[in-house]
Amino acid sequence: MSLHRVARFADVAQDRGLEVQIGDCKIVLLRVAGQLRAFQGECPHAGAPLAEGALCHGRLICPWHKAAFRAEDGALCEPPALDASSGIRWNCVVMKSGLMINHCRIPMSLGGTISEALSLSVPALQERRVPPLCGRKALADRS
């Protein structure tokens, strides 16, 4: 289990997600009521970078087609996505020096506040869905 330093807590804005990457896996970090959540960085609908969307009323809204996910747990709130945004099975560790993130399959309890420097995690949902390569995503990848 290796720890990857991906961001400082202060880097994660209140009104949007922050994309971080470990290997080829893109992750979006969100602030939710003083805690952090980590989800798949690309929209399960068409692969848009979710960090380029907005965080409003506890929902993360996709920049491309305005699918919306509950920031708390990634649940689907608005189409055209058909699935929840998978909570990545990452264990976020907040340390004084920054946010460490670690691929971890040990279920961890939700909760804790940043000031307590607790370990945070998100519920392990389904495996990260790879969106179909089509249209805009395919164009973006090609360019």
Binding site: D15, C56, R59, P63, A68
Partner: peptide, 11 residues
């Protein structure tokens, strides 16, 4: 203006 429109979609 995708971020702004994402915000408005909710707001």
């Amino acid at each position: 203006q995708e971020r702004a429109m994402a915000l408005l979609a909710e707001r």
